[in-house]
């Protein structure tokens, strides 16, 4: 009897793995902004689970951490991640030439 050929499973039905668990990161803290900025948009919205590919356990942890970070003034509500820049003095206006 001939072997039955295995069907090609389309990409959307294949099993996906959580990127955080796969990397071996166990704890998610609200102070770890560099990690949290991976899961928000440039406007500061939390990326949904169907797009980010996180497991339900880690998604709840990440959303809780993002909301805490917003309250602690580490992430912006409307702009998302704001990078740390060094203070620069603005050049003074020296009159028209």
């Amino acid at each position: 009897m001939a072997k039955r050929k295995r069907r090609n499973i389309p990409e959307k039905h294949q099993k996906r793995h959580c990127p955080v668990e796969k990397a071996g990161v166990t704890e998610i803290n609200y102070k770890d902004i560099e990690l949290l900025k991976l899961f928000i948009t440039t406007k500061g919205k939390i990326i949904p689970r169907r797009i980010s590919g996180l497991s339900s356990k880690t998604q709840t942890k990440v959303t809780a951490a993002i909301k805490q970070a917003r309250n602690a003034c580490l992430l912006s509500f409307a702009q998302g991640y704001v990078p740390q820049e060094e203070e620069q003095e603005k050049p003074r206006f020296q009159g028209r030439k």
Binding site: A23, D32, L35, K37
Partner: peptide
């Protein structure tokens, strides 16, 4: 440290 681990694995 943690964000590097994720970006490398993905």
């Amino acid at each position: 440290k943690n964000s590097k681990l994720i970006t490398e694995s993905v």
